[in-house]
Structure formats: structure tokens, C-alpha cells
Design a binder for these strands. Structure first.
Lengths: 115, 115
DNA sequence: TCACATACTGTGTAGTATACACTATAATGT
DNA sequence: ACATTATAGTGTATACTACACAGTATGTGA
């Protein structure tokens, strides 16, 4: 069905951008990528590991996250955590998100003054 | 400030994808592009005309919209309206949007069972 | 009548991001 | 031994938005 293809493309686009918001929201505590995938999945947000890794690196290069390797555990893991800048941006982004959500909801309200 | 550049980039990405939803939501009645820009702007959603036009064409090529030129008025205008398929997809997308919004909201809830 | 703003649609290009397939390795369970 | 899971990484194709630019017609003020 072609309809489904179009729809899933649009859904893909919808998710886009929100992923950063999701990731940032969870990184108050140092967390490694693989774990983050699971945390988000539990909360209904599915993101592929190989989509997440480049994202984490990008956010780090933008100064929103900082990372450190921990080798004392069984497997070497790279822990990421929000920087102060990351925190500020996360908050600003969330605020923007909330207002976007309100605006979009309003689009479905019936306009009483129509015409 | 570099922070603002990063932030506006992320906001850009956040908007992305939602634009289709916004546009579809308003096309129950035949409307032309320029007018649609104004309608959305009134409702707090700003989109450049030259961003909208390619989008309308794309949605038409995907079968979600259909268009017709109206030349009887002062200026020739191209009116777009949702097709039935467009309507179905719009509804499905909105449903998906709502559940995404709920999931994301939940990310900010404090987890009582933490640890 | 000239200039300019505004209404209206269109196109081309660059930047950037996600998805997905693939590589790689070590531990753990069977 | 072998399969699976845990863990991180890279490269490429695809697709979209933003933005600058093009182009026409109408109305308006000087």
C-alpha cells in the first residue's frame, strides 16, 4: 500500500528533531549510549543504536554533552552527560516545544468566527 | 553567542515535519498558498512562502492534495485542497503526533521508582 | 506616468540530519 | 564451539527545509 509508505515517511519526519529533545531530557545523570536506547524504549521512544551514536557525538561536538570512557566495568562504556550549556538549551528547547504543541493543537479547534 | 546558533538549529529541526501536519490540517477548504501562509501566521505558525510552495507541490505529487488554477479572480491563484487519502493520512498523522506528545511529556515526569 | 510596494507563484542550491546497512569486539549463555 | 547480547563506531543514500533569486500583475502615492 502506497498510503503506508507516505505515512511512515511523514512519521519519520515528525520524529526528527524531537529525538534531540528526548535524548537531552534523559542525560541529567551520566549514561552510556546502549543504556539510553533501553531507557527511551521503555518510555515508548524507539531509536536505533546506530542512529543514536552519531547523535551523541554531534551533541558533544556542539558542547551540549560531555563524555568519558569508563573502563573499570566489564565492557568499556562511554558515558555522556549534559553540560551546563546543554541544560540551558534543553530547557529552552522544551519551552519552545511546549508552545509549538499548543499552537498545533489550536489548529484543530473549530473556529467559531469562521467566515 | 554560539549558544543561540545551536538552539535555533535545533528549533529548526523541531519544526521540521510538523509543518506538513499544520498544512494538512488547514486544507479542508480549497486555499491558495499565499493565503495559507497568512492563515498559519495568524495562528502562530510562521512559514515562508517559498518554503511552502515546494511543500504543496510535494504533497500533491504524493496524492495528499489536489490543486486547481482559478483565473476568474484578479490574480491567477492555485487552490489546494486535501484529497480523501490526504484526509486519512492527516488523521493518522495527528493521532501519531498526539501519542508522541504524550510520550515526550512523560520524559519530564520524575520517576518515583528511580534506582 | 513613474516608482514602488504588495500579492502571488515558481525554481535551484546548499546545508544538515536521520535511517540503515555494515564493521568490529568482548562477554555470556547453551 | 556457537549464538546471542552488549557496546561502540562509520559511511552512504535519501530527503527535507531554508533561503536567495526569478518573475508577473495590480494598485497606489508622488
Amino acid at each position: 500500500m502506497v498510503k503506508d509508505e507516505v505515512l511512515s515517511g511523514l512519521i519519520l519526519e515528525l520524529r526528527r528533531g524531537t529525538i534531540v529533545l528526548c535524548v537531552l531530557s534523559q542525560l541529567n545523570e551520566p549514561t552510556y549510549g546502549y543504556n539510553l536506547v533501553n531507557i527511551l524504549a521503555e518510555k515508548g521512544i524507539n531509536i536505533e543504536a546506530n542512529t543514536l551514536y552519531p547523535l551523541l557525538r554531534r551533541l558533544e561536538s556542539q558542547g551540549l554533552l560531555e563524555s568519558s570512557w569508563v573502563t573499570s566495568e566489564a565492557k568499556p562504556r562511554k558515558y555522556y552527560v549534559k553540560t551546563q550549556k546543554g541544560n540551558e538549551i534543553c530547557n529552552a528547547l522544551k519551552q519552545h516545544w511546549d508552545s509549538m504543541v499548543r499552537n498545533i493543537d489550536r489548529l484543530w479547534e473549530v473556529d467559531i468566527n469562521e467566515k
